[in-house]
Nucleic acid binder design. Structure first.
Lengths: 208, 208
DNA sequence: GAAAAAAGTTGAACTCGCTCATCTTTGCAG
DNA sequence: CTGCAAAGATGAGCGAGTTCAACTTTTTTC
């Protein structure tokens, strides 16, 4: 059985993260002070820093929870994708997009992305990078499945085109969170307009 | 003739920006305090804020200088690009990359990019966005030139593929500045590996 | 079960970006 | 040249993230 100390630690960490998820969404990342989180989690400011190195780390931890879910759903889809190349790719990508705002606001995404660029060497910066890599990996895996099925031309390299695709959908997602007015539907339209022509180029059969 | 007041203003602004360019590169963006810039420019802290709204704005001003130069060179190349599709695209992109570290460190790029994501609504966030758009525009313009020449298939849309390409080269550049170890040569290799297959897909003739 | 060691918590203090009430300089009218 | 208005410079002070030396709690040792 876990010792008292260990249980208390796990409990405190959970309380801090829970406070963060709640307050960040309710009041905005910026507006929430570490002192507020400490108060809500019933610990001191110093203790918060014992569990997370920076305020940004707390945010990345919440983003990670969100993205893990998205990755799980993607897994299922990659195993058994729809028929057409464009359909398969867009179903996967739209799955990512549609879940993105479930727990996180655009402000939180902006800050998290800014952090992953600014502090790539911190443990949590690395964690974010790893999530990105796994997402890119799913896109590649999907292309491989489609190629094995004979739907994608044999002379293209799934890893290369997968990275190209992922870079595109990632940049478009960045533009989406940067623009508070932009809707999910508009994001989908933009990306579809870019993916469809590419799908046509790499498909073996005529794409609809 | 310009009045004394006006001359002094212009002079102070120049001194602040000059101090920023010098010190940011020498000591790192983070390590340089506004007070240091004020001292170097022989003005007070408050005066620095009279010319630039935030520390980030000062950085964006230096980035803007850099990118304007790159855009000028790109202009010349777009007007008269090399023969092959991959060659033309890569020459343009490598021109961007090779100049990127002339005045700016990777740390400065990271901070500038983070800022453009986090604060897209500020005057300088918008300015950065505009630079991005102009770079993407050059890629599109290049594809149009190549298409007019008959080197690119008539059934592809330069704006769409141009955006896709730009998203890719932009994301790869982000990965480059995130990784302090990565060399320009490695960046070039990665991007070439992604652009070449795409160039083959959109070209009319066999690409080398 | 007491004492020592290890682990973890605490909050006052520090830093640095940024603001604003006050002061100084410049331009101009009479 | 003098006095006044406008423009701009100034730096003490504020707020929020972060640190760290002292304190408290838990675990281990004998």
């Amino acid at each position: 059985m876990a010792g008292l100390r260990e249980r208390q630690k796990a409990d405190r960490e959970k309380r801090i993260l829970q406070a963060a998820v709640t307050r960040f969404r309710a009041d905005g990342y910026r507006a929430v002070r570490i002192e507020d989180l400490a108060e809500a989690a019933e610990v001191s400011v110093g203790t918060v820093y014992n569990y997370y190195r920076t305020k940004g780390d707390i945010l990345i931890a919440t983003v990670t929870m969100e993205v893990e879910e998205v990755l799980d759903e993607g897994e299922a889809l990659v195993a058994n994708p729809p028929e057409g190349v464009a359909d398969a790719i867009l179903t996967l990508i739209f799955g990512y997009y549609d879940h993105s705002l479930e727990y996180l606001s655009k402000e939180m995404w902006r800050r998290a992305m800014a952090l992953s660029i600014e502090a790539p060497e911190t443990p949590n910066g690395r964690r974010y990078l790893d999530l990105d890599r796994r997402l890119a990996g799913q896109v590649t895996a999907l292309l491989e499945t489609l190629q094995a099925r004979g739907a994608v031309r044999a002379d293209i390299d799934p890893a290369t085109i997968g990275q190209l695709l992922f870079n595109d959908l990632n940049m478009e997602f960045i533009e989406f969170v940067k623009n508070e007015e932009m809707t999910l539907a508009a994001l989908r339209d933009r990306v579809a307009a870019q993916i469809r022509p590419l799908a046509r180029l790499i498909a073996t059969k005529e794409e609809p």
